[in-house]
Amino acid sequence: MIDVLYFAWVRERIGLPRERLETSAVTVAALVDELRAREERYEAAFADLSSLRVALDQELANFDAPLAGVREVAFFPPMTGG
């Protein structure tokens, strides 16, 4: 099981802030493919990966990063702090 978190407009498009998933995905990209296949709202949120960022266990990562041992995946738009 893996915790998947969504922030900002990703959260709004998907309609929930977090969920617990059973996945066999080996990489972030494979997990994204699984999510996109689920429902239209996921397809809408993940349509353009260049406008998304991902963190694995609260560290920024790439979409080709492996998911082995990861407990928490977060998807969000580019950050706008400061």
Binding site: A8, P77, P78
Partner: peptide, 26 residues
Amino acid sequence: LMDYLKSRAPFWKKEIGTDGAEWVAA
């Protein structure tokens, strides 16, 4: 610190305007 906080600290700003709301784009 300011340059990195802008783009590498996980904050997202949403402007609530008098005619609608919009996420601030990076």
